[in-house]
Design a protein around this nucleic acid. Structure first.
Length: 553
RNA sequence: GGCCUCGUAGCUCAGGGGAUAGAGCAGCGGUCUUCUAAACCGCGUGUCGCAGGUUCGAAUCCUGCCGGGGCCGCCA
């Protein structure tokens, strides 16, 4: 029996009790709360439904709980139900009912843990969105790992997701980039507000290789060549780094397209139509203070030039009105949190509900730690730690895992020494090792000619360690759903670590394959089902994080 | 000054209102002639920053304060 099924049984028991006692069924929740108690003496599962309903229907909690326990205790597969404390229901399952979970998992395979919890939602998920004027630095990489994991999670829970990278290859930033390249190509000092770093020299040389003599052109055409070619080369490098990192974007959205398609005007018209646009000092403003922003924002400057903010409006308009996404999710670094107020106000100015149509996820900073000290980054001096640096230092799997295993609210120090270690304290190795151990066991079984067969006796999986493993496997779907709904992929990583530990403990205690001259038994087969189920869940969990599942280590 | 975020064991962190707050590391001591010891087992650790509030119940929600980090542009 899965937790989901048990929860339904609890609800159905509650419904029966309510009917018997003539209580109002409208007080019943949509789903019965079910949790896994910390303390194993409190059963396999516990429900607080009696505590939550008691007041609403005017029955003492323990009295309600007792009636529920009575009814629920007669359910097939339920071994016992006890009332504890103020009105907890402590539920234990029959070994056979618990063991059935191995079958559920094996039969579902790659789909185990997937659901339709977010079905029907059309989500635009924007992340990274770094302008191609330099390599991706550590902060952007956190979003690459987290955004990609989130996209996988949302898809696994049924949402329709488009991943998107928004960029701008025109404007002052690009001019500075072009000037820096040009200066490097001419062997001059980088301009004061320019970009530093070795990559500037590299790109400048690459441009020269394609356009010999470009550095000798007069400034305007030279700047044009270095700007256009430099951006193209830089972007190619970024895309190749992302591909190597296992991150794929459905759409690379160029801000310029918004201008070319007239969407800035369209967005402006729409905002005017909603009555939040006004003129002052010769500029066109959006009254974002109507919706909690700390000041109004300029849309069109006195000079007639649109602001970047108007492009933001147009980009939002494009996603909501033109392409019809239900929800726009944007992942921002903590240094951009100042955008939150204006972005939410912007959405409201289009008549949207910022709580429903727009979601701004803020992630804290990332540092790389070598030899116990933080590697300091400086854009000015070009000492940025890039995606490629990180991958070179600890590899793709460790990098993705390290970036995904912490709450986005928590700043991360990635210790190179830790994440390259092959021991228990390196979480990615610990989890992958569990998978490799299983794969090895399954190889050995195949060599011995032992298969798990078409069926097994779930009642044989009654050992304490087996029971714990089964319970852990049962928690996976809820871990996935909550990670997706809360936009917190680290929950999946933490779940995987817990499961890996539970598996290692099972493995340590419960021999699976026969030794010496022993013959395989029904228990051997039952355990092979459990082992395969464990492998599937570890693989599904790591897949959601974009981390590989090695068969050998 | 305003806004965001964090504050949980010596360290790094988990804990989306539930029971006696948990993992790893660090420290000490155990377990491999047989399925991967990259593992497992045992021992110790807490004013959950402080003070109020909501609740049958708060590390969790609300308010204030203290402390760390970050951000405030007719730049892009």
């Amino acid at each position: 029996m899965t937790p989901d099924q048990l929860s339904k049984e609890v609800l159905s028991a509650a419904r029966d009790v309510f009917t018997d006692r003539g209580l109002d069924p409208a007080a019943l929740p949509a789903a019965a709360p079910l949790e896994r108690p910390r303390n194993r003496e409190h059963g396999d599962y516990a429900s607080t439904i009696a505590l939550q309903l008691a007041k609403r229907v005017g029955v003492a909690p323990r009295e309600l709980a007792t009636a529920l326990a009575d009814r629920l205790g007669r359910t097939a597969g339920v071994k016992s139900v006890e009332v504890a404390g103020p009105g907890f229901l402590n539920i234990r399952l029959e070994a056979a009912a618990a063991g059935e979970l191995a079958r559920v998992v094996v039969q579902a395979g790659e789909r185990y843990g997937h659901s339709t919890a977010l079905a029907g939602q059309k989500v635009n998920l924007e992340f990274v969105s770094a302008n191609p004027t330099g390599p991706l630095h550590l902060g952007a990489v956190r979003w690459a790992a987290l955004g990609d994991a989130l996209a996988r999670l949302l898809r696994a829970t049924g949402a329709e997701v488009t991943t998107e990278y928004y960029f701008n290859d025109a404007g002052a930033q690009v001019d500075r980039f072009a000037d820096s390249l040009l200066a490097a190509a001419r062997g001059q000092e980088v301009p004061a507000d320019g970009y530093g770093g070795d990559y500037i020299d590299d790109i400048a040389q690459a441009v020269l290789a394609r356009h010999p003599g470009a550095a000798e052109l007069p400034d305007p055409p030279a700047r044009e060549v270095f700007g256009t070619e430099g951006i193209a080369l830089m972007f190619a490098e970024i895309k190749s780094s992302l591909a190597g990192f296992g991150v794929h974007f459905d759409v690379f959205f160029n801000e310029r397209d918004l201008h070319d398609r007239g969407e800035l005007d369209a967005a402006l018209g729409s905002l005017r139509g909603h009555g939040h646009v006004y003129e002052r000092d010769g500029a066109v403003w959006l009254r974002t203070t109507d919706f909690g922003d700390d000041k109004d924002r300029v849309l069109v400057r006195r000079t007639g030039a649109p602001t970047y903010f108007l492009a933001d409006c147009a980009y939002y308009y494009d996603r909501r009105q033109v392409r019809g996404f239900d929800r726009v999710v944007m992942m921002l670094g903590a240094d951009h949190h100042g955008y939150v107020g204006r972005m939410r106000a912007l959405a409201a100015c289009f008549g949207d509900d910022p709580d429903r149509h727009l979601e701004l996820l803020i992630g804290q900073m990332v540092n790389l730690v070598r030899a116990g000290t933080v590697v300091k980054m400086s854009k000015r001096h070009g000492t940025v730690v890039t995606l490629d640096d990180l991958v070179d230092a600890i590899g793709v799997d460790a990098a993705r895992y390290a970036l995904a295993r912490y709450s986005p609210d928590s700043p991360i120090d990635i210790d190179v020494e830790l994440w390259t270690r092959a021991t228990r304290d390196n979480p990615v190795y610990y989890v992958q090792y569990a998978h490799a151990r299983i794969a090895s066991l399954l190889r050995n079984a195949a060599e011995l000619g032992i298969t798990r067969g078409a069926d097994f006796d779930p009642g044989l999986l009654g050992h304490e360690k087996e029971h714990e493993l089964l319970t852990a496997l049962g928690e996976f779907p809820q871990a996935v759903t909550s990670a997706a709904e809360l936009r917190e992929p680290h929950r999946v990583a933490r779940y995987c670590e817990g499961l890996a530990g539970t598996y290692h403990r099972f493995y340590d205690t419960c021999r699976v394959l026969p030794q010496g001259d022993e013959q395989p038994t029904e228990l051997t087969r039952a355990r092979l089902w459990l082992v395969e189920a464990s492998r599937i869940v570890l693989a599904n969990g790591l897949a959601l994080l974009g981390v590989s599942t090695p068969d050998r280590m």
